[in-house]
């Protein structure tokens, strides 16, 4: 029995970051895969309690940043020394010391785009609707409550057993959320 097609999963509510932290360790150790913790602010070290891997954002930023810097320099070189070469102020065509600022700035600009849009992309945001928003309690996730949701698509998910399991982790309440 267990899964009803309409169910998104179970949502457990916790009072403090500490309760959540220990609950996450238990959920992680129980072997669930499709689950997540929801918090009003980043709880320090929670990714370890959840067993998450490091973010990919740094790689995106690194690649974007160096690309931006390279493009910035090449643009200047091409415009100033190739497409319309012109000596100005007795400076050489390839005045690389003077090209440093506009090499640096696009590097930072692209890197920042990489960080922001990379983060949004990895998080699949914007996503204005989410099943969890169906829960009344869940509104407090941006205020002072901490949640764990185990999703119905998890192979270990079983409505009653998982509910019981979550209750034992010290949840204030456990509710089933519609999809």
């Amino acid at each position: 029995m267990g899964k009803r097609p309409k169910s998104f999963g179970l949502l457990a509510e916790y009072e403090t970051p500490g309760d959540l932290y220990h609950a996450c360790e238990q959920v992680r150790d129980a072997g669930y895969a499709a689950w997540d913790a929801y918090t009003p602010f980043p709880v320090h070290g929670l990714e370890k309690a959840m067993g998450l891997r490091a973010s990919l954002v740094p790689w995106i930023v690194c690649v974007m940043g160096f690309t931006g810097a390279a493009l910035g320099f090449l643009m200047q070189y091409w415009m100033a020394a190739v497409d319309y070469p012109l000596i100005i102020a007795a400076k050489p065509l390839n005045s690389y010391p003077a090209f440093v600022p506009i090499t640096f700035e696009p590097g930072i600009l692209f890197g920042a785009f990489g960080a922001v849009f990379g983060m949004l992309g990895l998080n699949k945001l914007p996503q204005l609707y989410h099943s969890l928003f169906n829960s009344k309690n869940f509104a407090r996730v941006t205020d002072d409550r901490f949640f764990i949701a185990i999703e119905a698509r998890d192979p270990r998910y079983h409505t009653e057993d998982t509910t019981k399991f979550l209750e034992e982790t010290g949840a204030l309440s456990v509710e089933e959320v519609e999809d």
Partner: peptide, 21 residues
């Protein structure tokens, strides 16, 4: 808010992006 829901999996990327910014 773009549908922000405080997911910790999101926070991990978010914090990384914020630090890098």
């Amino acid at each position: 808010a773009m549908g922000w829901r405080g997911s910790h999996r999101h926070w991990v990327n978010y914090e990384s992006a914020y630090l890098l910014l």
